[in-house]
């Protein structure tokens, strides 16, 4: 979907660019631009909702102002979208220009529709655990606050997909044998999981944090109408290291649907993590790992697969250990 993004003077991203893959795992120290990358994509979506403005006259441009430029995969590779910013962090001007090559130059409407479906998530276990109003059972909210209603709707509208969702959950968490979704008198939905031993239903506010995060990620992976792009911060949050393989598989289900026999379109995924255990799982696909580096106040992106000596390094160390050691970069500056 998004082929590349180039930054100039945007927060710590002073002059850097990144080619995006169908799946992107972004690692790096705090404040190195992981969240800024996602914010830029969210801002592109926000400005795409508005009518396009005419070309900005040169005398109105801030020569030192921030600028973020997006290019796209076919069939929209003939368009470039630039966000111009009034300050280091506030970008409020979207300009779309045709390129000399590529297709879709007349299809901003089509590209816009895809961009408007972009979703960004930073799940919160307390939000996920809350009851939610039945009417909110559409798209999953950024913090997962309406998960119960989303699952209730899924069960009613797509029972086959809901059964697949449930089967996957119960396989990963075999201590449970049923999902309960109960409409209450005030038209809110209460979510619970039934214990396989004893049949007691554990209400959502008593579920483990990791279980709540897993439920939210599963809901994304089994969304019958997934967005074109999904950004997820701290994807490993609350998840036991041995279950991270399941999380990676669920995200691959979105990015590479054919790998699970699914025929729906691919979803571009941008996920951030601080987990060396999750990083270990990308040994066979280093091209999917983006390292953010920060030196002083300036940050930039590199692809792990660009390391010419990576194969040799992996002979004696796991990716996670190599990252922690510092030799891959993407670690905090120290005095």
């Amino acid at each position: 979907m998004i082929a590349s993004v180039a930054f100039r003077n945007f927060k710590a991203l002073r002059e850097t660019s990144l080619i995006l893959a169908p799946f992107n795992l972004v690692i790096g120290p705090n404040g190195s631009g992981k969240t800024s990358l996602i914010q830029a994509m969210v801002q592109l979506r926000a400005l795409a909702r508005l009518p396009l403005r005419e070309l900005m006259p040169d005398d109105e441009r801030h020569p030192e102002g921030a600028e973020i430029t997006f290019r796209f995969q076919p069939p929209f590779d003939g368009l470039e979208a630039s966000l111009s910013c009034v300050s280091e962090s506030l970008c409020d001007f979207l300009q779309v220009t045709p390129l000399s090559t590529g297709g879709g130059v007349d299809d901003w409407v089509g590209l816009r529709a895809r961009l408007l479906s972009l979703k960004s998530y930073r799940f919160n276990h307390e939000a996920i655990a809350s009851t939610s109003a039945l009417k909110d059972g559409g798209e999953l909210a950024p913090d997962g606050v309406n998960l119960a209603a989303v699952l209730f709707t899924l069960r009613n509208t797509n029972p086959n997909i809901f059964e697949c969702f449930k089967a996957e959950l119960l396989r990963i968490q075999p201590e449970y044998d049923e999902i309960t979704l109960i409409e209450q008198a005030d038209h809110t939905i209460a979510l619970g999981l039934r214990l396989a031993e004893g049949a007691e239903v554990v209400p959502s506010d008593n579920l483990a944090q990791g279980t709540l995060y897993l439920l939210a990620i599963l809901a994304l992976a089994f969304d019958p109408e997934p967005p074109a792009i999904v950004c997820i911060e701290e994807i490993d949050r609350g998840i036991h290291p041995r279950l991270l393989r399941e999380i990676r598989d669920l995200l691959y289900r979105l990015s590479y649907p054919a790998s699970t026999g699914d025929t729906r379109p691919s979803v571009q995924v941008v996920a951030t993590t601080h987990s060396p255990y999750l990083l270990d799982l990308f040994r066979d696909h280093p091209e999917e790992v983006v390292i953010t580096e920060k030196h002083g106040r300036t940050a930039h992106f590199t692809r792990l697969s660009d390391r010419a000596d990576l194969a040799a390094l992996l002979e004696d160390g796991s990716l996670g250990d190599l990252w922690f050691s510092g030799i891959l970069g993407g670690v905090p500056d120290e005095q």
Partner: peptide
Amino acid sequence: TRAELKFRVYGTDRPNLQL
């Protein structure tokens, strides 16, 4: 390559754990 072996066994280079 190891990647080719995986593809021959699983039919994809990104098999999930169940597969």
